[in-house]
Design a protein around this nucleic acid. Structure first.
Length: 139
RNA sequence: AGGGGGGACCGGAGGGUCGCGCGGGCGCCUGCGGGCGCCCGCGAGGAAAGUCCGGGCUGCAUAGGACGGGAUGCCUGGUAACGCCAGGGCGGCGCAAGCCGACGGAAAGUGCCACAGAAAAGACACCGCCCGCGCGAGCGGGUAAGGGUGAAAUGGUGCGGUAAGAGCGCACCGCGGUCCGGGUAACCGGACCGGCAGGGCAAACCCCAUCCGCAGCAAGGCCGAACAGGGGGGAUGGACUGGUUCCGGUCCGCUCGACUCCCGGGUAGGCCGCUGGAGGCCGCCGGCGACGGCGGCCCGAGAGGAAUGACCCUCACUCGCCCAAGGGCGGGUACAGAACCCGGCUUACAGGUCCCCCCUGCCU
RNA sequence: GGCGGGGUAGCCAAGGGGUUAAGGCAGGGGUUUCAUAAGCCCCCAUGCGGUGGUUCGAAUCCACCCCCCGCUA
């Protein structure tokens, strides 16, 4: 990692082709929240990568575009803080577009934290996630 | 000063930090496909929207044409083209500036006009009115002015006329025709003639005039894996076994399969199309104008699971609260995001700027 | 992005200028029955996605918007 620019967002950390999206969906691991649905898959190193799904129910084109830009911005800033290495696909619900940037940021970070619950070496000892028995390869 | 009408335009401004896309330059790395870093430049709209029209572009089809189908619809221009625009005509609204108008044809034909009404199209006479006959009920005839029905009933007003009436006659208006004048034309004006030809609906079928091949960048073209499959060629082999090491024998294959080479089509993916154009700005000239001509200057997005975001500061506008002017605190700043490119139309839109014109009131 | 199709009672829907906008399912009320189901009768109002226009008259014809569903990788 380049110490000078820790918050880069180059194209290679995005999911850019159908096969990559299909691979994430094929893992059949997801987390459903009121505001979004999160699919993920371990990609075996290389850091976190992001794919976005925002369908027309969310709003008109400029609303969808702004939402995707904000989600990318959140991912760019927080990507280095998260442990592990995974591909994420966020499927946004219509209510997500009504959130301000700060609320959006909090809800995305919360979602990532929750799906990392089973992986984190210091798991929160509260209620275990239903998918706690992840076949997590060693870090 | 108040009210109203028309046109053109802007659609937050400045700065900072992090980040993204494209182009250029330099450096480093490379498995030569590219990757990374630094610097510079550029990076959504007036509607980018709806996809309602028109064109360019691309492919397919096509001898020419007709039929079918669709579109347009006062005239003349503008334009690459248009259902757009400009000017003009006609009709309607407004005191006016101005605004609005699907504005060809119903004597080419077909069809429809519910209910009511006598009668809904070249048909008819309910109540009336008048004349004749009859004691009378009524009958025969004349009439379409009046009543009544209806969205719509054979032109309107007035005078004459008559038994009562009627374009029956006359004047004006309307309508039709011919001629003259103005205008490129739509149309306008005038003279004469005709007593009137004739209901409405063409966003009913239709007729007339003009225009239109079909599809759309997911068009179309190039490269092209893995895997499966197509076509053509090359090469003939494998197993077992007998004996005088060089000859045989049996079985299978020999149009299959396997091997190898070549060719062509497709898929994932990549590249081109992809942005310099009916382009923008300024000036001059022609034109009432839309627009055109000439000259100069400029380059202003090219993504592809899809680049414009996040945060902070100052200012502007606006709303609410506190409040003595002043200010303080908090909130908001529209409609909305390029996807091949243009010309229009339509729809959405906080707020604001400039110019011209009309009406009313007051002052000079 | 491009190209098609469609909006009629809660649901499925016919009607394509004429005055009560068919019919079926569901729901409600009544009748029948000892009771239930079935049957029979009645009900769902100003309404045909909105806004204008044409017409005497519009769900129907025309224009413009809104929404929904397909096709095209």
């Amino acid at each position: 990692m380049t110490p000078r620019h820790p918050h880069r967002y180059p194209r290679r950390v995005r999911l850019t082709r159908s096969a990559e999206f299909e691979a994430v969906f094929a893992c059949r691991r997801s987390l459903s929240l009121p505001a979004m649905r999160v699919y993920w898959r371990d990609n075996g190193g290389g850091g976190w990568r992001l794919g976005l799904v925002v369908n027309r129910k969310v709003g008109p084109a400029h609303v969808r575009n702004q939402l995707k830009r904000r989600l990318r911005e959140i991912f760019r800033v927080h990507r280095g803080e998260w442990q592990g290495s995974r591909d994420l696909v966020l499927n946004a619900a219509p209510t997500l577009a009504r959130l301000g940037f700060r609320e959006l940021e909090a809800s995305v970070c919360d979602a990532v934290l929750r799906l990392s619950g089973g992986v984190d070496p210091t798991p929160p000892t509260r209620t275990p996630e239903p998918t706690g028995a992840l076949p997590e390869p060693e870090v």
